[in-house]
């Protein structure tokens, strides 16, 4: 029988981990975001790998698919033109204006570096813009008129966006009726709080039970000038409504966007008067 091997103690590493946990997130996130920027070349490799199945398709099938794609593209163009015409008519009819354009918000386009978070319980994406581009914590991130999330951490060249499905994401929200009732504006309805759940859907909570909420209705933001959130931006669509036994119904909100497929996003920069009137809310 040989000499008994001495087992190493885990305590030094536990102590280092505990010390790291005590360091403020703002300090560690800058370093981490800078380190993550080193992985940017992998992103283009992944994009190439995602498209690989299309490249290795047999040629006969490929030709047939190409014809179908050309036909569908043509159809798509026709429908897009029709949609544009109808949208303009609707906009004129309702006297609606883009909520963002209306309030002199500025938009900055940013490329998505990594569309996901390594932790299964946090939902974030990394963008290739940071403090040197004027990005600040708390700014809202959009894709068209849909909310992607909020800037939670910034480094000089990269920033982390807390996605709407992250459990730390909260915003004032209201379920817009599918059919527009004249004389009822969204601000007059009972607003609730939208919160992410770390799952695929978010939740709309704390709104009055008498508020009619229907499946498929859009959940949109309510105006929050302090945090630079204009009203009418889409957070998702009502998936299920559970009235249960509580005073407040639980509404599951399904995001419309596929966050993993995003290649670029828009950062919403509020006008200076909005930014000076209150500090923008940072994600936790």
């Amino acid at each position: 029988m040989g000499p008994k091997k001495k087992r190493a103690s885990p305590w030094p590493l536990i102590l280092i981990s505990a010390l790291l946990l005590l360091v403020p997130s703002t300090v560690t996130q800058k370093t981490r975001l800078t380190a993550v920027a080193g992985f940017i070349p992998f992103r283009s490799l992944a994009t190439w790998a995602e498209r690989l199945p299309d490249k290795v398709r047999p040629s006969a099938e490929s030709q047939e698919a190409a014809t179908k794609v050309a036909f569908l593209e043509d159809q798509n163009l026709k429908q897009a033109n029709e949609l544009k015409r109808l949208s303009l008519q609707l906009e004129q009819a309702l006297g609606m204006k883009q909520p963002v354009r209306d309030q002199n918000y500025r938009m900055i386009v940013a490329d998505v570096v990594f569309p996901t978070d390594s932790s299964p319980w946090r939902k974030s994406l990394t963008i290739a813009m940071g403090t040197r581009d004027g990005i600040e914590k708390g700014l809202l991130v959009l894709y068209n008129n849909q909310v992607v999330g909020r800037i939670s951490e910034t480094a000089s060249r990269t920033s982390r966006v807390q996605i709407v499905t992250d459990p730390g994401f909260r915003a004032g929200a209201v379920a817009a009726p599918k059919t527009y009732i004249s004389g009822v504006s969204l601000s007059e309805r009972h607003a609730g709080v939208y919160q992410g759940t770390a799952g695929q859907n978010g939740q709309l909570k704390w709104f009055g039970g008498e508020t009619p909420v229907e499946n498929g209705a859009f959940v949109v933001t309510t105006e929050d000038p302090v945090n630079g959130v204009p009203r009418g931006l889409v957070l998702g669509r009502v998936a299920t409504v559970n009235h249960g036994r509580g005073a407040f119904p639980k509404v599951e909100v399904e995001p419309i966007l596929n966050f993993q497929a995003l290649e670029h996003v828009m950062i919403l920069v509020p006008p200076m008067e909005v930014r000076t009137s209150g500090t923008t809310a940072g994600g936790r």
């Binding site: 010390l19 946990l21 560690t28 981490r32 390594s118 946090r122 974030s124 982390r160």
Partner: peptide, 17 residues
């Protein structure tokens, strides 16, 4: 794992340990 996460640095290090 912590480097790629929005969570606190050291959490996964501790759990993996």
């Amino acid at each position: 794992k912590d480097v790629g996460s929005a969570g606190p640095l050291g959490l996964h290090a501790l759990l993996f340990l």
